[in-house]
């Protein structure tokens, strides 16, 4: 299962001929006794939008912290723009949106942005930032008076203020309502491109699917899959066949082309990359089968199956 997903080099070269801008090389990170990351290899290429997808506690925030130089790896190597992530030169090319609170509430949007712009040698103009983050007309508003969605947009504005080549967004839309989430998505999408690399962590599959052209699935500190949304669905068993049959689970599991079988109601739920051959075989073995249904599986299900596969 793994080999199929990880072997994406050809696929990647076709989509992005960008060079490697940052990488984790066999990186492990342990906090006291908990291992947050275990031997992770991850390369980020110029121009791609990568989603780190996984449940809470999977190690996504740790991965971002390593790239930002905020966390030192226990083992392995972190490189950003060819040097240590803590180097000032690489920092000026990076922007970040982290899961934080405690943003000073008595400063205005314009003031927050002006201060963060000053950290960079060649920042974007205030107007460009306000437009990109959808904050035009709110520049005099105090941070404390903003709605949840507006606050997240300001965090996004700060992240892009230095005109970064590499942008990290840690759970950018967590806690937002659907409308605000969609608005932030379109701002992120508009800001991508032009050789800019964006890394976002999320536990919303919909978000990864909507924004990323590459998804890295992380579970309990390990990369369990890395590929396009389509290839992940493919590997997890592209089609789901639901059927009521007298055939038992073991028989079906042994059929060629079947990747997984689970009992469901009075029948079976069968996963197969190509459904046609399996259906033909099933009909051959049990001409009386009924309730046949073939559907594509969602990313949500692909994700669940991949994580369960590792646990087993």
């Amino acid at each position: 299962m793994d080999t199929g997903v990880r072997d994406r080099t050809a696929d990647q070269t076709a989509n992005f001929n960008g060079s490697i801008v940052a990488s984790l090389q066999s990186v492990s990170k342990a906090y006291d006794k908990v291992e947050a990351l275990r031997g992770v290899d991850l390369e980020l290429r110029a121009g791609e939008v990568v989603a780190l997808l996984g449940p809470n506690g999977a190690g996504k925030t740790t991965a971002i912290g390593l790239f930002l130089g905020r966390i030192r790896p226990t083992r392995g190597r972190v490189q950003v723009f060819g040097s240590e992530p803590t180097r000032a030169a690489s920092r000026t090319r990076i922007g970040a949106m982290l899961q934080i609170s405690g943003v000073p509430e008595t400063l205005r949007i314009r003031e927050h942005i002006e201060l963060f712009r000053s950290y960079y040698p060649q920042p974007l103009s205030l107007e460009t930032i306000l437009t990109a983050a959808g904050l035009v007309g709110l520049e005099q508003r105090f941070y404390g008076k903003l709605s949840g969605g507006q606050k997240q947009r300001l965090h996004f504005a700060l992240a892009l203020s230095g005109n970064p080549d590499l942008l990290f967004l840690d759970e950018p839309t967590v806690g937002l309502d659907v409308g605000s989430r969609k608005a932030l998505w379109s701002q992120i999408r508009r800001f991508s491109g032009q050789g800019r690399t964006i890394v976002l962590s999320t536990h919303y599959l919909e978000e990864a699917d909507a924004l990323a052209d590459r998804i890295v699935l992380i579970d309990r500190g390990r990369v369990i899959a890395d590929g396009t949304p389509a290839s992940i669905k493919q590997v997890a068993g592209g089609r789901k066949i639901t059927v009521t049959t007298r055939l038992d689970r073991t028989t079906v599991e042994r059929l060629p082309g079947v990747s997984d079988v689970r009992p469901r109601h009075h029948g079976l739920e069968i996963l197969a990359p190509r459904a046609e051959a399996v259906v033909r075989k099933l009909l051959e073995l049990d001409p009386n089968l009924h309730g046949l249904e073939v559907t594509g599986i969602g990313l949500e299900e692909a994700f669940l199956r991949l994580t369960q596969g590792v646990k087993a």
Binding site: R70, A88, R91, L98, I100, G102, V103, P104, Y120
Partner: peptide
């Protein structure tokens, strides 16, 4: 976390 964010910036 505000200080952490600022420290992630140059």
């Amino acid at each position: 976390g505000w200080m952490h964010l600022k420290r992630a910036f140059p």
